[in-house]
Structures are given as structure tokens and as C-alpha cells.
Design a binder for these strands. Structure first.
Length: 330
DNA sequence: AAATGCCACAACCGCCACTCA
DNA sequence: CTGAGTGGCGGTTGTGGCATT
């Protein structure tokens, strides 16, 4: 039987808090010489008074040689926003799309910077004369704010819900808002042009996004030479093909998502927790994230209980990786 | 110059899924 | 099959530095 490792509790011998340079050295040397094994063994063998978890975190978030330090570029920002709109708070999956960045880093960046920016946008865009009875930002405002952030291509969750009431039925969407959107993606075999309650067809919602093509049917393409934030809208859509057919992930509006998540948790006592990619191995020494992602792909549909399975992140990233500004080579 | 507030980042915590004896 | 151990994840908290008063 393996030795139990109690991290944090009843283990006064283990250090906590900030890592000293000496500890970093020890861990770094050990990892470089021995590679990753059992993390509790790493902690022991490297002579660290830390629990394995702590070592793992330190390595992944700080010491890993392939980490990209420094501020996020605007392109990375956009990618994060885009992926978040698709994946919700699945930071590890989002991080898988940004080589050299960690889930923790992205999570912090989101919570500290992007969330705030969205909030500001929402409040500044909100009309004082909203007749909506609920207190959430209006759909239009939310969508406009999201569009302002990313330059187009997002459909609010409420709009998704309008497209398919199933998606908002608590009995069906017992999981997270993100899953709700994924359910929408798979369950909602959309009509050719779903109508939103404000009278715009779904494709008509393009008006928000300054985009000429149906947002969901527009392959991400800047190969045509459109500028990053311009008409084409680099984030204007994602091709996700199932069975050779184009299906469109009903993208979540970022702002509404936050509200919806809160509401969802309150209603169902549940949080976002059905992550598709459990196999993304961030420790891969050659930092070949693409391969790792590929390894985690599969199980798109997990059976009769309507449990929504994995996103095809590879497909997702195929589109994303076509962004010329994204240099994942380092 | 000191006090206070804010922000970004690092690290911890608790939960869950998976593996293995 | 079962339960202990481990890894991984997202949420949350703690802390240090910077800006403002």
C-alpha cells in the first residue's frame, strides 16, 4: 500500500507558502534529472519539505522550462476570450490552446483583467431605460459588450436558450452553464434560421458582430487578408464538424454566462465540472501541446444519459491555429 | 513620508476521477 | 469489487508591490 500523503492537514512537517529559491533549485534539478514520477516521491527524493501537490503546482505553474512568461498579448487575450466562450471555466483546456501558458495564469488573468473589462463594458453600454424586468444586463448590451471585446462571433446564452428551450430546462441541464451550451450544441439540431425573441434571426444576430456571413457558419479565416478586428472577424465562428456536417457551437456570451452560471449554481447546486479532456498532459517534456491535445480527444458523445462529452478541441484549435498572429513555436 | 486601497500573481483547498493493490 | 492513494482541476485566499491619498 502506498504511503498516504496528507497535504496541508495534520502534517506540520510540510512547508507551506511561498517557495524559496533553494526549494525551486531543488525541484528544478530533480525534475530535469529524473523527470516526473509520482509527485510525492518527487517531493521526498528532491529533499523538499513540501507535499507532492505543492511540488506539482510549483513545477507546472512556475518552473517548467517551456513556460512563456510576461504579459498576455492581445492575440492571446482574444484567444482566451474565444475559448472561454466555448469552454467556460475549463481553464486547463483553455491553457491547452495556449502553449506556454498555465491554467492558473489564464484563470488569474481572466478573473483580474478580462472579467473586469467585460463588467465595465457592460455597465457603460447599459441603457438606463431598459424595460426588462430582470436585473441582468439586456441581451443586446451583453452581446454588444462581448462583440466589442472580441470583434464578433458570439451568441449569447440566452439567445441559445431561446433557440432551444430544452437548454434551459433545469431537468435537462443539471450540469453547468457550459454544459448547457454544449447540450445546446449537440441537442439542438437547429432549424435553418432560428428566430430570436427580439425578432432577429440567429443569422441576423450578425448585426451585433459586424460580420457579413452567418456568424456560426463562418470559418475563422484571416487568410483572406482581413484585419484582426475587422469585417471578417477572426473569431467569427468555429467549424466543428460532426459527421461531416457543420454544426455550430452556440457560443456563450461572456457576460450572460457569468450571470447564468451563478444562477445555475444557485438553482442546481452544481458547478461547471464535466471536463472533457482529462488526458492533456502538461508535463510533456517536449511541450508538444498539439499532440497532447490530440491524445485527449474523443468521446464526443458519452452515451444515452445525454452526458455531453468532449469538445473536439483539436478541431477547435485547427481553426485557431490558423491565426497567423499566434506563434506557438516557442 | 506614512497610510490605505487596489491589483496581479502565487499558492492553497477541496473535490472528483482514475489507478492500483 | 473495494477502498486507499494520487493526480488534476477549478475556486478561493493570501501576499507583495504599486498607486493613490
Amino acid at each position: 500500500m502506498r504511503k498516504p500523503e496528507v497535504c496541508g492537514k495534520n502534517n506540520n512537517k510540510l512547508r507551506k507558502g511561498l517557495w524559496s529559491p533553494e526549494e525551486d533549485d531543488k525541484l528544478m534539478n530533480y525534475m530535469l534529472n529524473n523527470g516526473q514520477g509520482c509527485w510525492s516521491d518527487v517531493a521526498r527524493n528532491a529533499g523538499l519539505q513540501r507535499c507532492g501537490k505543492s511540488c506539482r503546482l510549483r513545477w507546472i505553474n512556475y518552473l517548467r522550462p517551456d513556460l512563456k512568461r510576461g504579459a498576455f498579448s492581445p492575440q492571446e487575450e482574444e484567444l482566451i476570450i474565444h475559448l472561454h466562450s466555448l469552454l467556460g471555466n475549463r481553464w486547463s483546456q483553455i491553457a491547452a490552446g495556449l502553449p506556454g501558458r498555465t491554467d492558473n495564469e489564464i484563470k488569474n488573468f481572466w478573473n483580474s483583467t478580462i472579467k473586469k473589462r467585460l463588467k465595465n463594458l457592460t455597465s457603460s453600454a447599459a441603457s438606463p431605460n431598459t424595460s426588462d424586468s430582470y436585473s441582468e444586463p439586456s441581451k443586446e448590451v451583453a452581446a454588444a459588450a462581448a462583440a466589442a471585446i472580441v470583434g464578433g462571433g458570439f451568441i449569447s446564452m440566452q439567445e441559445q436558450a431561446m433557440m432551444n428551450p430544452m437548454c434551459t430546462d433545469p431537468s435537462l441541464s443539471s450540469a453547468s452553464s457550459s454544459n448547457t451550451s454544449m447540450q445546446a450544441m449537440f441537442l439542438n439540431q437547429m432549424d435553418s434560421s432560428p428566430t430570436l425573441d427580439h425578432g432577429l434571426s440567429m443569422y441576423g444576430a450578425n448585426a451585433y458582430f459586424n460580420n457579413n456571413a452567418p456568424p456560426c457558419m463562418t470559418p475563422i479565416g484571416i487568410t483572406s487578408g482581413d484585419d484582426l478586428h475587422g469585417n471578417q472577424g477572426i473569431l467569427g465562428g468555429v467549424n466543428i464538424g460532426i459527421g461531416g456536417e457543420l454544426h455550430i457551437p452556440p457560443l456563450e456570451s461572456i457576460i450572460i454566462e457569468e450571470n447564468a452560471r451563478t444562477e445555475d449554481i444557485a438553482t442546481h447546486g452544481n458547478t461547471t465540472n464535466n471536463y472533457p479532456f482529462s488526458n492533456v498532459n502538461k508535463m510533456n517534456s517536449n511541450c508538444n501541446k498539439a499532440e497532447n491535445m490530440a491524445a485527449g480527444i474523443g468521446n464526443l458523445w458519452q452515451g444515452e444519459d445525454l452526458k455531453v462529452g468532449d469538445w473536439d478541441l483539436e478541431e477547435l484549435m485547427k481553426d485557431v491555429s490558423s491565426f497567423p498572429f499566434l506563434d506557438f513555436s516557442n
